[in-house]
């Protein structure tokens, strides 16, 4: 038998579950956000910049 009554403590639990889902979603992103970014990406940006500088020099 399903209890369809809307008791105050049940509403509290519903809100709690919803809040936990939101909280966990934030945690998925946040836990990825605190990860150290591998050096290869900063290196890649530096390489792109160097290449550009070299090209500009050649064109001058």
């Amino acid at each position: 038998m399903r209890n369809q009554g809307s008791k105050p403590e049940q509403d509290g639990q519903v809100d709690q579950i919803k809040a936990q889902i939101e909280e966990n979603l934030k945690r998925v992103y946040q836990s990825a956000l605190v990860e150290e970014v591998p050096d290869r990406f900063k290196l890649l940006l530096q390489q792109l910049k160097d290449k550009e500088a070299l090209r500009d020099e050649v064109q001058r």
Binding site: L33, V37, R40, F41, L45
Partner: peptide, 29 residues
């Protein structure tokens, strides 16, 4: 460079796979 961290976090959240995420970040850069 200032956006690498959120970009990678988005990639990881989306792909749920760090290797795939890093390939994606590289291509995006």
């Amino acid at each position: 460079v200032e956006h690498l961290r959120p970009l990678r976090a988005f990639a990881i959240s989306l792909t749920r796979n760090v290797t795939a995420a890093d390939d994606l970040v590289q291509e995006t850069i």
